[in-house]
């Protein structure tokens, strides 16, 4: 359904005075999402998760230069095409109700989304009722303003906004931080329901635990590239391949709670070789000389020359 190939995003920034410098924040990123699956994107902040979403939605700022290609349903996704599909075939579930219009009743906002996607006013009204009903939101909720919603209700309204437009690809950007476990579980179950209806779902999160609850596959991002795309079950069976993925898993409080020292390399000082080489325990001279390409290890792609078969 969606396939991202060799995506690189470079920002031109002003260094000092008039000199411009190029900051490559995403390098050779790859990802593919099938209809009916939840693809989780996991990584630290600054690893390029949100930027990828912006690139898919075509909302990068003007000083971003993009190379590589994004394909959606067999056709190249140009900025023009993504602006046509945005909110219709491709929908975003934002982080918080801060993305809703604070001065408009939520029912009307959802209805407007439906109408913008091409439904007539009466069809849109019916779709809104159906969607609210589906997520257990009473009809009275439609007349509330965003600030009157409780945390759980707000999440359901945000999901409803994305779903009412009959999107085929749903991108959820950090839908769960700081929420109570029950609300997290509920939000996640909505996402996995969408996938079981045949939609493609991208779940962007820093929270591996949340991702593993519903994801079919997990793409792990580090410093703007995909280091591994693994079936979610490999985490539990100990089959994960990349040292960074293993580090993330080990660092969970319910596992070993051990951290790898240091921090992600900054975009203006990326190492020449493997992006994780500076923090990797198993680093060798070869790691530092060249960026590793994807190789298939135990049935899934990983960017590490040492990952054992």
């Amino acid at each position: 359904m969606l396939s991202v190939e060799n995506l690189s995003i470079t920002f031109s920034m002003y260094d000092r005075g008039l000199a411009q410098k190029q900051l490559t924040v995403i390098t050779d990123l790859a990802l593919d999402v099938q209809a009916g699956e939840v693809m989780a994107i996991v990584g630290a902040s600054g690893s390029g998760k949100s930027l990828l979403a912006h690139a898919i939605l075509g909302i990068l700022p003007d000083n971003a230069k993009v190379s590589g290609s994004i394909w959606f349903k067999g056709d190249l996704l140009t900025p023009q095409r993504s602006s046509q599909l945005r909110g219709k075939a491709i929908a975003l579930i934002p982080q918080s109700i801060g993305y809703l219009d604070p001065l408009m009743q939520v029912g009307r906002q959802v209805q407007r989304t439906a109408q913008l996607s091409g439904l007539s006013a009466s069809d849109a009204k019916a779709a809104v009722n159906r969607t609210f009903d589906r997520y257990g939101l009473a009809a009275a909720v439609q007349r509330l303003y965003p600030f009157q919603l409780s945390g759980g209700m707000a999440r359901r309204v945000l999901v409803a906004t994305a779903v009412v437009a009959q999107a085929e690809l749903v991108i959820a950007d950090e839908p769960t931080p700081g929420l109570h476990p029950d609300v997290v579980a509920e939000t996640l179950s909505h996402l996995s329901q969408l996938a079981s209806e045949g939609k493609g779902v991208i779940l962007i999160t820093h929270d591996i635990e949340a991702a593993l609850q519903i994801a079919d596959r997990v793409a792990v991002f580090y410093a703007g590239t995909t280091v591994e795309i693994t079936p979610a079950s490999d985490f539990y069976s100990g089959k994960i391949r990349h040292p960074y993925t293993q580090a993330l898993w080990r660092a969970l409080p319910q596992n070993d709670f051990i951290a790898v020292a240091g921090s992600q390399p900054s975009p203006d000082a990326l190492p020449n070789g493997c992006l994780f080489s500076e923090r990797c325990a198993g680093v060798t001279a070869e790691c530092r000389s060249e960026r590793p390409a994807f190789r298939q290890v135990r049935g899934a792609p990983v960017r590490c020359i040492h990952a054992a078969r």
Binding site: E5, S12, Q20, N63, V66, S69, L76, P79
Partner: peptide, 21 residues
């Protein structure tokens, strides 16, 4: 395949800040 189709910026001689200043 990897054509730079998504590129938004044309090449210009002066950068934006130079023009502004």
């Amino acid at each position: 395949m990897a054509a730079p189709v998504l590129s938004r910026r044309k090449s210009i001689r002066f950068n934006r800040r130079q023009i502004t200043l």
